[in-house]
Simulated scan of single mutants.
Amino acid sequence: MRDRPGFGLRARGCVVAGLFVLAGCSGGGGGADAGADAAKGAASQTPSASPGTGSTPAPTAPGASGAPLVPELDESRQPKTAAEARALLGRIVIGQAAFGPEVERATPFESDPRRWPVLDQDCVWQTEGLPPDVLATSTRYFQIPAKDGHGRVLINATVTVHHDRQESGWETARAMEEVLRCPDQKLRDGEDLKGLWGGALHLGEQMNGWTEDAFTESGKYVSAAQGGGPQPYIWSQGQFGPVTLAVAGKGAEGFADAALNALVVQGTSRLMVNTKQELAKAAP
């Protein structure tokens, strides 16, 4: 999935909390770059918080009306095969219209669904075949072309389907480990992430009422092809049952940070809405 990260909350945690609030209020409660920008591979098996199990219901956090923003998972709707997972992906993934009229498809538009990025010991992203815990993954790439005094803005949206909630929870835990181990990461030659920090909030912690596990990463993006930099970089990830979803944004000279954050929240929110519609239990 790459272009993402993790972090233990620090003084900048208020920025992260703000993103969670926006995601929770946008689209009814929350919503993929090729190679090193797809879903993450195996890393440390030591999560900062225990992921849920496939058979244990996740807690719910109430919205303003008292109804939970995170409904109960219908485990009977979880995909059991790769084919079922790919079909589910097709109903969850978003196109450029989810971000607004200024956003276009980038080239390439979609990642290789047979590949998965892994952060090696030198903090360089490599790609491998899908690991056993991933049934299907998709990353789509978008852009706002350079115009009106700003450079080219890059966005990618990723959805990954696991067998159950336990596996998707471990993915979030590994994301935390990766950013702590490698605050500076190389995406590819001439393209780097610098000074990454990140954090995760379980449902009900602080301001997270929109996802079972919220994970946000922030830092700087440096790219020779994008005019050097550094430019703002942000990754926002959510989880519902066996599905993780995330949107990353890479800023540009002259493009407001707030506008970049809003695009990330908007995409994440749409993805989460789609996921809940597909996997939540029907209301009684």
Rank of each mutant, 00 (worst) to 15 (best):
V247M: 03
A173V: 09
L193T: 01
Q231S: 06
A246R: 12
Q206G: 03
V243L: 03
L187M: 07
G209W: 10
E167C: 00
T211N: 07
W235R: 13
T211G: 10
D189I: 02
V243G: 00
G209T: 07
G169I: 12
F255R: 09
K220W: 14
P183C: 01
E167M: 06
T158R: 06
W170S: 04
S236T: 14
T160G: 08
K194D: 03
F215G: 06
G249L: 05
L201R: 15
T160F: 02
Q231C: 04
G249I: 03
E171W: 01
V159Y: 00
P242N: 01
A173M: 05
N261K: 15
E167Y: 00
S218A: 12
V247D: 02
D257H: 10
L260M: 03
A225D: 13
F240I: 03
C182Q: 10
T172M: 11
F255N: 02
A224L: 04
T216C: 15
V222C: 09
A258V: 14
Y221K: 06
L187Y: 05
P183N: 01
H202P: 10
E171T: 08
A200I: 09
F215A: 12
E177F: 13
M176S: 07
K186N: 08
E167I: 00
M176C: 14
T216G: 06
T244E: 00
D189M: 10
D189F: 00
E167A: 00
L260F: 07
Q239R: 12
D192F: 02
D184V: 13
K186G: 14
W210Y: 13
G219I: 07
A248F: 02
G209Q: 15
G241H: 00
V179H: 04
Q185E: 15
H162W: 02
L193E: 01
E212S: 11
F240Q: 03
Q231E: 13
L193D: 07
W170L: 10
A248C: 03
S168R: 06
E253T: 10
Q185F: 02
H202R: 15
S168K: 11
G228F: 11
V222E: 08
T160Y: 03
L196R: 14
Q206K: 15
Q206S: 10
N261V: 06
A225I: 08
E177Y: 12
S218Q: 12
A259M: 03
F215K: 15
G229Y: 09
T244N: 09
A200T: 14
A252V: 06
M207H: 08
W197F: 09
D257V: 14
V243S: 00
G227N: 01
A225V: 07
E178R: 10
K220A: 14
W170T: 09
V179L: 05
G219M: 13
E171H: 09
H163L: 09
A200F: 08
G204C: 04
Q226K: 12
E217Q: 15
A258G: 08
P230K: 10
N208Q: 04
V247I: 02
P183G: 01
G229A: 05
H162K: 08
N261T: 06
D184A: 07
N261E: 05
T172D: 11
E167D: 04
E191V: 10
A259G: 00
N208D: 07
E178G: 11
G190M: 05
D213L: 15
A258Y: 08
Q237F: 02
P230R: 08
E205T: 08
K250D: 04
